[in-house]
Design a protein around this nucleic acid. Structure first.
Lengths: 356, 356
DNA sequence: CTGAAAGCGCTAACAG
DNA sequence: CTGTTAGCGCTTTCAG
């Protein structure tokens, strides 16, 4: 390719067309131009003709207002901050994608920042977002206390997304993990009443707690009291899923008969273990929170719980928009129902029988 | 939850601590404070004692400079724009995640925008990013001509990421799809010399062309001339993979003996078809561009090509940083080697035999 | 070594 | 209906 040395360094001369320039060309004042360009011309009853002239000139000059100047003077930055653990986690990626679309359509820019579920990092990225004067903050926090966010909420709206911190009263949009998990667990109990294991993530995270609660509720409904060793917790890393599975199989000397994994990532680890040990064909009932299209392609038919990420994104977005507009939302906590994807033929058969 | 009506609307009073305030408290002028806070105190030989005082006060007041004010006056926004087709595409999500980390560590904010591979939308998001005065632009464009970007490159650095537009001379960081694809194709040819199909995406996209070229090269090396009907193109949607597979199976009256899919998304569609038609156990050799950990968990052992997303991100980031600093980079086109993940036992056996 | 002052581009009163 | 006038918070000469 060898163009290296011909590379011209960008000439940053192209001086920006400012609103002053537009005003000048249109023969009006900056203020008038500003009004017109912000679509508030009728509110201030600017002459039809003046408006058209300004608009035309702006268009032909390809005028692009400086967000920074605007932010500086108006106090709004037209950005939203999104704080998530990891952009590679399928659910968060999905939600982020949906939010990006919603923001784009509303003329906002989404600023995505990852915390890696590490609270020091979370502090830092939140600081950085505040510094950029985001108009609102959407957070899937891994913090233990909502103190930081309560403080922030004094000056700009904060909405908790997918997770909520302890008993925080901050607005939130989450999935109802409990009911769906209970249903899937009940089904596992029908397949294998004498043995239903559970692998979960950090108990400090609300999703973990709700999923565990769902598991326990499901067993209770099935009239089963789980011995302690059925329940295991680590974090949501695939590695942890693998390790928990390895340990369990070693202990039992065989794979478990039924298992519910609290997340797709954990399930990944479990599947990796099964594959490595030629157990993919084993007779094991699996249920999992989170869903992925590829689960449709596995020989092992796993019943899974799919969060409604588009709805999560939509409601969180609406909520924060309302808060930014200083409206009082109808509800400050929204709990969305996930969808269960029954894949196991035995499950499907039982469901059909129930129906008839 | 019913707190709805108690919801206090955020009181946006907490007046921001500005540099003036810091200067005032420290008993110096704004200019001095600015120098100190930007770490250029020794360059201007500010008194040691003065500096410490300013720094201490800034810290205790939790001073956070306004990015917008800074951007306005300095002309830099400390943001990078990333333009990708879709944040849900595994490779792009991975790259975005890595870039986000690199940016964060460098005190930059990454602005991610998706185009859905639609050029009108691409125009729009690029406009929006320019308007936000990004300091540089990283793009995986689906445009046919680099005209837009050549123009932008006059005023700010543009780096092509993962894809390049036609014969564009703009800087780029891409994967060398050709060699790896050729290798995997050769392997498919050894398994099934008389039938090796290929499914690809839009030919206007450079990755599609390189992957196809790799396939053809692999066959050529194997001494095979592919009949036209072996090669099919649509787009990179899973749906298209499914459709192409459905059509092919219908035509043949059986699944193909060997197939290379040009992307993970296409493979997904293919796998879905196979699963739906109970063909997962069929004797079919699959190779694919792109990789995913879950492929380790499939009974069908697929040889796949994993792009080195962290490296892609790293090099693109370094490159654009250099360009922003108006340095002349050593090379303006970087081609990174992907890694082949051999999973098929037959492939692995052959490779071992070759070695000995 | 430090301070004063002039903008960056835009918005928002407040006068005409 | 339109223009004037202050800033928003920070950087950056240019004089002390």
């Amino acid at each position: 390719m060898g163009h290296a040395h011909e590379l011209k360094k960008p000439v940053k001369n192209q001086k920006r067309v400012t609103i002053s320039r537009i005003a000048e060309l249109a023969g009006v004042s900056k203020a008038t131009a500003s009004l017109v360009l912000n679509g508030r011309s009728d509110e201030y009853r600017v002459a039809e003709e003046t408006r058209e002239r300004v608009l035309a000139i702006a268009r032909e000059q390809h005028y692009q207002p400086s967000i920074h100047a605007r932010a500086l003077s108006s106090g709004r930055s037209y950005t939203l901050g999104l704080v998530i653990p990891d952009l590679m986690n399928f659910g968060f990626a999905y939600t982020a994608r949906e939010l990006e679309t919603l923001c784009r359509e509303a003329g906002l820019q989404l600023l995505i920042a990852c915390t890696d579920d590490n609270s020091a990092q979370e502090q830092m990225v939140v600081d950085a977002l505040i510094q950029r004067q985001v108009d609102g903050l959407l957070v899937a926090s891994s913090a233990l206390s909502d103190q930081l966010y309560q403080k922030i909420n004094q000056s700009l709206p904060v909405v908790q997304l997918d997770r909520h911190i302890g008993e925080s009263t901050l607005p939130m949009v989450i999935s109802d993990a409990c009911q769906a998990t209970a249903q899937v667990t009940q089904m596992l109990a029908r397949h294998s009443p004498d043995e239903i294991y559970y692998f979960g993530g950090q108990l400090k995270l609300s999703p973990s707690r709700h999923r565990l609660a769902g598991y326990e509720l499901g067993l209770k409904r099935a009239g089963i009291t789980p011995p302690d060793h059925w329940i295991q917790h680590k974090d949501f890393q695939p590695r942890s899923g693998y390790d928990m599975m390895a340990e369990l199989c070693n202990q039992l000397g065989r794979p478990p008969k039924a298992l519910f994994t609290g997340s797709f990532t954990l399930l990944e680890g479990v599947l990796r273990y099964l594959q490595q040990h030629q157990l993919m064909e084993a007779n094991i009932y699996l249920g999992s929170f989170d869903d992925h299209d590829l689960l449709d392609c596995l020989p092992l038919r796993i019943d899974s719980i799919a969060q409604d990420c588009p709805a999560l994104a939509f409601h969180a977005f609406s909520l924060i928009q309302q808060l930014i507009a200083e409206q009082t939302p109808a509800q400050n906590a929204q709990v969305l129902a996930p969808r269960i994807r029954w894949r196991n033929p035995a499950s499907i058969r039982l469901l059909n029988e129930d129906r008839s």
